[in-house]
Design a protein around this nucleic acid. Structure first.
Ligand SMILES: [Mn+2]
Ligand SMILES: [Mn+2]
Ligand SMILES: [Zn+2]
Ligand SMILES: [Zn+2]
Lengths: 132, 132
DNA sequence: TTTTACTTTAAAATCGTTCTAAACTACTTG
DNA sequence: CAAGTAGTTTAGAACGATTTTAAAGTAAAA
């Protein structure tokens, strides 16, 4: 399935801008990135795009499940092209995130979900620190 | 140990402002809060304080281990008076966080820490969603 | 082809947070 | 106690990420 079809299937109009972003993000390679990093890649690809459009697209892509947004306390939103359930190492000093595939983690015991709620995904974050 | 002693032991001068915050935060009750929520509580207690001072104090308290800051992708920093290692439920709709005590979670298998790094704490986040 | 709804954009606005620099205060030393 | 000094508080400005605005542009529908 090509990117135009992926966008259509997600219910998004395949505009020029969304296609440029899809060509960069939906290449099957897993990466973590910010809006600014993406803008640099767009520029490097010979295109250019308003930062508002980049944020608009990222929000649409996220809401459609084409990308994920990572729960981390950085001021800057970090997105992830790995949409499979998985986990992360986080170097709090640098903010660097490293994927942990889902089968690398196994939970023996989980708490009961609060009344009236459903489990909507478990994320394990392993904070790491450079050895001195 | 009273709050003045706690601050001294943490290496912090017990200023008027830090004592006001300590009286609110260090009462043994576990809660999650933002700088703005704390400012409202300070105001309700009949005191007032510059927002810069509140941020200064929270940073000092965090660095001394008197409180923790939670890894969340919200724009607003969330602090936690529960300084024991523990985990959270997160309602992504509302941003509400609920504590999970450490012994409620048990990991059967953890991935190998990357070369040159040390494990600096494991956090489990269980995303939850209101039942419809 | 015309109409409609959706999208993009530059620029302004917003919002949480940090910085600045001057006034203030806790602690130290004499 | 009386300076001295190092750390702290503050209002307001600045900052940086993100969102809003409103006008122009484009994709899809009729
Ligand atoms: Mn923040
Ligand atoms: Mn943010
Ligand atoms: Zn990832
Ligand atoms: Zn907590």
């Amino acid at each position: 399935m090509n990117n135009k079809e992926k966008l259509r299937k997600a219910g998004l109009r395949p505009t020029k801008q969304r296609m440029i972003i899809a060509d960069i993000l939906l290449d099957g390679i897993n990466r973590h990135f910010t809006a600014e990093i993406l803008q640099n890649e767009i520029n490097s690809s010979g295109n250019s795009m308003s930062i508002a459009t980049i944020y608009n697209c990222l929000k649409k892509f996220r809401n459609c499940g084409l990308i994920k947004q990572i729960e981390s306390s950085k001021d800057t939103a970090i997105f992830d092209t790995n949409i499979n359930q998985h986990h992360h190492f986080l170097d709090e000093e640098t903010g660097e995130l490293i994927d942990i595939e889902n089968d690398e983690v196994n939970l023996r015991k989980l708490p009961e979900i609060p009344q009236g709620y459903l489990n909507n995904g478990v994320e394990v974050l392993i904070k790491i620190k450079k050895q001195i």
